[in-house]
């Protein structure tokens, strides 16, 4: 199968193989999927993330460049529909205006949606093609890599701090961190609570997305295992695959939406005075 060397592979090996990233060890600059440590780059995750993000930017930029106030064409209609949807969500939740909020939400929604959609690509298709050109490991769903989701969540966290300081001032932010919610006499406890709260935000954002998509991908891989177990189980696998894919169309959209909405909610909390 995906290992491409013709040997019979055990189910465990098959699953592990599918869950292993194509890794670039930055210390030795070699592709080594068994490398460990911090200075290792998941080439596949970042590659697919960048390709899909690029697809998003290219498509939307193309529409933006030719956007007219006249009768919109099909693609412009589609893009405007998404923009309007995101804009509506932002306007509904975020108090006041800031030019960063809506574009951030749009980027999150579309990019995460596209990365989630990699889930729906048959699990063996791209790894097998990669094996054909000598790449032994390929994990095609970027959001099934915790680095990707946590990376986005941490960027959101940085923007949260930027908003806190911008809207409340450094003093206001410090005051809120020290006196909220139990008043000034509980300052250390308040600060501790605040740290936990702020840590919980990126963790909940990233792990929710990662967990959903990782689990989804794992189920797809397990279903794919059925295709190696004779025609009866293959037929069953086909049905299951179809069902799970249909269900995942929902999950893919929902998780992108949830990530976006939670980001907007966190930003509103950061921008609001208590």
């Amino acid at each position: 199968m995906a290992s491409g060397n013709g040997e019979a592979v055990s189910s465990t090996d098959y699953v592990i193989h599918h869950l292993t990233n194509l890794k670039l060890d930055l210390a030795t600059m070699t592709l080594d999927s068994h490398a460990t440590g911090f200075w290792v780059l998941h080439v596949d995750s970042l590659f697919f993330a960048l390709v899909l993000g690029g697809l998003f930017l290219w498509l939307f930029r193309k529409v933006a460049k030719s956007a007219t106030a006249g009768v919109p064409s099909g693609m412009q209609n589609f893009v405007e529909m998404i923009v309007e949807f995101v804009d509506g969500q932002v306007k509904e939740t975020f108090p006041g205006t800031h030019p960063l909020v809506a574009p951030l939400s749009l980027t999150i929604f579309v990019w995460v949606f596209l990365m989630n959609c990699m889930d729906l690509v048959p699990v063996d298709l791209l790894p097998t093609m990669a094996a054909g050109v000598g790449i032994d490991y390929l994990k095609v769903v970027p959001v099934a890599d915790v680095n990707v989701t946590l990376g986005m969540a941490l960027t959101v966290l940085l923007i949260l701090y930027y908003f806190n300081i911008k809207f409340k001032g450094l003093g206001g932010f410090a005051k809120e961190a020290l006196t909220h919610p139990f008043g000034p006499y509980m300052a250390p406890f308040n600060l501790l609570l605040r740290i936990v709260e702020d840590l919980a935000k990126p963790v909940s954002l990233s792990l929710r997305l990662f967990g959903n998509l990782f689990a989804g991908e794992l189920i797809f891989i397990l279903i794919a295992l059925l295709f190696m177990q004779g025609w009866l189980l293959s037929a069953l696998g086909l049905g299951l695959h179809w069902l799970w894919a249909v269900f995942h169309i929902l999950v893919v959209t929902l998780q992108a939406f949830v990530f976006m909405v939670l980001t907007i909610v966190y930003l509103s909390l950061a921008a609001e005075h208590h």
Binding site: L26, G37, F38, W39, V40, L41, H42, S45, L46, A49, L50, G53, F56, L57, L100, P103, L104, T107, W111, D145, V146, N147, V148, L150, G151, M152, L154, T155
Partner: peptide, 16 residues
């Protein structure tokens, strides 16, 4: 967790 995280953060910031 590895340097992919940093890459994704930078990419995300640039995209936004």
């Amino acid at each position: 967790i590895n340097v992919t995280l940093i890459g994704q953060m930078v990419a995300f910031a640039l995209f936004v």
